[in-house]
Design a protein around this nucleic acid. Sequence first.
DNA 1: CGAAATATTTAGCCAAAGCTAAAAATATAT
DNA 2: ATATATTTTTAGCTTTGGCTAAATATTTCG
Lengths: 220, 220
Amino acid sequence: MYTVAEENYIKSIYHLQRHQKSVHTNDLAAELNTRAASATDMIKKLEAKGLLKYEKYYGCSLTKTGKKLALNIIRRHRLWEFFLSEKLGFGWEEVHAVAEQLEHVQSDLLTDKLDVYLGFPLFDPHGDPIPDTLGNMAAREQTPLSLWTSQAPAEVCGVGSQDESFLEMLSLKQLEIGCRLTVLRHFNFDKTVELQLATGSSFTISEMLAKNIFVKPVEV
Amino acid sequence: MYTVAEENYIKSIYHLQRHQKSVHTNDLAAELNTRAASATDMIKKLEAKGLLKYEKYYGCSLTKTGKKLALNIIRRHRLWEFFLSEKLGFGWEEVHAVAEQLEHVQSDLLTDKLDVYLGFPLFDPHGDPIPDTLGNMAAREQTPLSLWTSQAPAEVCGVGSQDESFLEMLSLKQLEIGCRLTVLRHFNFDKTVELQLATGSSFTISEMLAKNIFVKPVEV
DNA sequence: CGAAATATTTAGCCAAAGCTAAAAATATAT
DNA sequence: ATATATTTTTAGCTTTGGCTAAATATTTCG
Ligand SMILES: [Mn+2]
Ligand SMILES: [Mn+2]
Ligand SMILES: [Mn+2]
Ligand SMILES: [Mn+2]
């Protein structure tokens, strides 16, 4: 159906589109570790296939068809991440790289049977929602810890990066999905955040870290 | 590491090598639904990488390294087939096509964790043995039904083709791996074989079919 | 506004993996 | 032992998806 390269472009465009309404060539190239010239070429190919619309020197944005494809690829990626983590015992810092390969196995039957087998999971190991067959997915309230000013306890519900060392650091600090914490203080000097776990232990984390940890109010 | 094309060539050469000691360009091209010219090109590439040795106009055969790679790909293929069949509920006629894609996901960690998760299965859904990490696998006694002359009951332990309609036909006739049967008669005229299942029902199958059903003596 | 900086596209390469058609080597048959 | 047939290789072309360098468009800033 679609080549691996095409699928990777579509997925990247989809992700970039959440932030900017139109996706710029340079941003796309950066996201895919390639060059602007290559991105321009592929954009033209994808436009010819009706997956996106493109205006020279301005940028591109996915069509309905393009979005549907993107959500299907994301569905495959996150279902495999869940499988690797839940069934095979991979660490959450290991699953992304393998899922990058598995997501390109094209068989809707496989995807749907996997979904059934896993019990229709709603979130992947990083807290990202898994689209269903129609592309619908749970909305996630995602307040970065850097903006959480409430005294009330918060629950970690997602992370903003797939970087291995970032995720390893979180595991080390016992900051996993579902874990409860309270923000003790935001230091103005460098935006360091001091927090306390349910276990009682308290420590500080950098602003960079705080920006990539998403929390929500603890449900009662 | 290796491209999908390279892996497919290595796997095909390995399979052809069981029959002929040296693999001929035309046979390889036929196996891969490609042309002799393309096969020649790839053979040269694989020789340069040390995976096979090649003599012009004569043929090629895998080196130690090449065989090791081939067995690893076959291991991945058969483990995925087992997974699809056992865990996801795929029919045995559906698994091969999907496994053709999954086999190219390159992660030894994934392969080994999958093996553990599946409980170190010895055979895939078609009765083919699954190599372990070192490339060792169970030897299968495989007498085709066309050559089974004994009156003693036999157990189906493998099939000689992955063709979908062939496997569907077997399912229809209740001829699955592990099933018991007795050969009633070989008809000389067209080599038709008459057989009887443990259920009591008896019927005939064509020579072509009989050649692709492997049996072994029922263990007591 | 106009110059400089930045972003994007175009032009012209390259490697992988396929193809056809022609040439060359090997095998077969009279 | 030739002549014919078959097999294999070579040569030259195609597509996909990269790249660099140069050209062009857009944005920013003095
Ligand atoms: Mn991921
Ligand atoms: Mn990918
Ligand atoms: Mn198979
Ligand atoms: Mn394959």
